[in-house]
């Protein structure tokens, strides 16, 4: 039940529709059950990471670019280039 409440609050929180009353309930819940704080933090972190499209797109782009650059040359056997870049 506690986790279900937390999830419900999280849904409202992430959509920016949590009421003042529910926010107070949430704070009380987290205070009363400190073990839920970690779960709450993870929800928040997950939300931040997954909803940040710009960062996720940039990460995918960079990973592809590195693979591409790396495949063009076997860097493990080469000396560093342009160390003064």
């Amino acid at each position: 039940m506690k986790k279900k409440d937390l999830f419900l609050f999280f849904m409202q929180y992430s959509q920016g529709i949590i009421s003042k009353e529910d926010k107070i309930k949430l704070e009380k819940l987290l205070k009363k059950f400190p073990e839920l704080s970690e779960e709450w933090e993870m929800h928040l972190e997950l939300y931040e990471i997954l909803s940040d499209s710009d960062t996720a797109e940039f990460r995918d782009w960079i990973v592809d670019l590195i693979k591409n650059v790396s495949s063009q040359k076997d860097f493990s056997n080469s000396k560093a280039e342009n160390q003064d870049l």
């Binding site: 960079i62 990973v63 670019l65 590195i66 693979k67 591409n68 650059v69 790396s70 860097f75 493990s76 080469s78 000396k79 560093a80 280039e81 342009n82 160390q83 870049l85």
Partner: peptide, 27 residues
């Protein structure tokens, strides 16, 4: 970005290979 990668990847790869890592770790 590619130009910077071309300069940095060999340095990072060499460092990682010398320190118990592999090419994937460097990337």
């Amino acid at each position: 970005i590619r130009s910077v990668m071309k300069a940095c990847l060999p340095m990072v790869t060499n460092h990682v290979l010398k320190n118990k890592g592999n090419k994937q770790d460097a990337e």
